[in-house]
Design a binder for these strands. Structure first.
Lengths: 338, 338
DNA sequence: ATGAAAGCGCTAACAG
DNA sequence: CTGTTAGCGCTTTCAT
């Protein structure tokens, strides 16, 4: 290890022939420093390659300029072929980068992970915390908020916390109802659904949308459950077909599961959409490339990330009012599968 | 904001009726504390919900228990449909999680990003730094290493740095040569390649493998270049076909580009592998699901991540000898496309 | 085995 | 406008 000692404020001050306070002012861009002195300090900083020690700075400012995004999932899940997480992260990155804040990504799939994350945040490593992909009634957001840590969520929390936590979400129900109505307009009458996990608001709301639309039409429901993965879509589709070989349409609560469903349907020789119409939810890029291209409900995931990041920045800098809830619109995108 | 003041060591000490030093010992698991006192301290810690302030701790220990993974790419690239990055991250996560270190992911696609990353690392935010997906002769790893920060790379650095930086890589050339030989065994004689970007070792080495194998066989080469994205694969394949409509095989330097190539070939009505045999490089999950399933060179990306993380842990804790280079094997996986 | 004391490197009053 | 002075919360000798 080379371990060239890193220079401190003190060293810079000595070299420039001024006090530590003055160097600190220059480094932090204070305007009340004489030009000549500032130049001398700047030169000393460059000559020494001085970079402020963040730990020391945080200790006194109580700020870290970092913000965490917590995903209550395993790393294997987050970094799989699922395209939801990447999109959220992309949105968050865009916004934080513009604000020159560092993103700290934390996966907390296990109980140990949850513990780690809580310690990390409580230890003052970050100025604020974002949650995405929440399951059930995760107590962590509320707990951190109660500790005075700024918190926002993407996805409406399943149980309202005290204090209330700001969140972004999309209009799941509206999107799904548009999708099911489209199937009805197509003349389909045996419309099944592959629902998402029922410990997540996205799973619950999309199922509610389906149920509402079918009830409005006076048709019976037909539900199988998956967990948003492609594989679970395959399995669920097979179950649906076993229950009702004559079904003529299926609304699938995520694109990944819809791709699984397409595969399962093809395996039974069914033509899409002639025999069975399929609609997904997400509108990922690859859904345009599948065979046939997938009709799906578009949700603006990147925007959710951006919005959430905007909210946390507002809380952290206490500079803007942060809305308690933002609900982004969804939209049916019709392609060849329905 | 609730801002319940977070308790300090001092508070715990008062409550337990001991000195700060003793509380510190208990919190850090020192064995030289009387059982009775330790219990009292532990109780006080729990009652107050005490969590050590990481900034203060880092200030004195000079350690953060965090390690950065730096990806010299834009967030949009890292979190796209490319499956390389997720796999690396997954491997890294697995290993760091086991060591209870926090992963800090940093994208540094722009010059501003590079700057940010350098400041961040130099400011002592992390104990060590990993690089993946390096382009050209990126000076950053060398610079950080010279500052005494432990650094490792995935992918052999293009220009050896001083001090030498440990790295992991895979046997690109061996894998590619096996692939091209397979095409030769199949009787193919007009074998083209879609090469990766030539500012990356992975791009260079895979092209070298192709060239070597063709030269050994006494056949002419036929090269188009892409940048590892699907779209660039489509374009490159079209160029190759325009140059030589009679080509009967193509080795593509990444699976994503290979999927693009398959699409471009299908669009011209060519049958795969009857008319043109295609081999990729990566062996992503989806390559088994493409039409037809892709013959490809398997590289153990997750293992690269794990290995790299192991190396950095060794450097950071200075507990194990860290090999200067680890080269993981690759292997041809034959499926229907060749 | 425990406590007292000295900083780690920095910022932020407060004087001057 | 600049310097002096206190700490931020913690670990770690060094005594006891």
């Amino acid at each position: 290890m080379v371990t060239r000692e890193r220079p401190t404020l003190e060293a810079v001050a000595r070299r420039a022939g001024v006090s530590r306070a003055t160097v600190s002012r220059v480094v932090n861009g204070s305007t009340t420093v004489a030009a000549a002195i500032r130049d001398a300090v700047v030169r000393a900083v460059e000559e020494l390659g001085y970079v402020p020690n963040q730990a020391a700075r945080s200790l006194v400012t109580q700020r870290t300029e970092s913000i965490a995004l917590i995903l209550p999932e395993s790393a294997s899940r987050v970094f799989s072929d699922d395209l939801f997480f990447p999109a959220v992260i992309r949105g968050v990155s865009l916004e934080l980068e513009a604000a020159d804040k560092q993103l700290v990504l934390m996966m907390a799939g296990s109980a140990a992970g949850q513990e780690r994350v809580q310690r990390y945040a409580t230890a003052g490593h970050v100025d604020g915390v974002m949650f995405a992909s929440m399951h059930g009634t995760d107590p962590l957001p509320g707990r951190l908020a109660r500790l005075g840590i700024p918190v926002v969520c993407s996805g409406r929390p399943m149980s309202p916390a005290h204090p209330a936590i700001p969140y972004v979400d999309v209009d799941h129900i509206g999107g799904v109802m548009a999708a099911v109505r489209h199937l009805l307009d197509l003349g389909r009458r045996r419309i099944a659904t592959i629902a998402g996990p029922q410990d997540m608001v996205a799973g619950i709301d999309r199922l509610t949308g389906y149920r509402t639309a079918l009830r409005d039409a006076g048709l019976p429901e037909h539900v199988a459950y998956g967990d948003f993965t492609r594989e679970s879509g395959i399995q669920a589709m097979r179950r649906l077909l076993a229950d009702d070989p004559a079904l003529d349409a299926v609304f699938v609560a995520s694109d990944m599961m819809a791709h699984g469903a397409l595969q399962a349907l093809r395996e039974t020789g069914r033509r899409i959409p002639a025999d069975v119409a399929v609609i997904g939810f997400d509108d990922f890029e690859i859904s345009r490339l599948s065979d046939p291209p997938l009709t799906t409900v578009h949700q603006p995931i990147v925007d959710m990330g951006r919005t959430m990041a905007g909210q946390i920045l507002g809380l952290v800098t206490a500079t803007a009012d942060v809305p308690a809830a933002v609900v982004l619109p969804t939209k049916l995108v019709v392609r060849a599968s329905a």
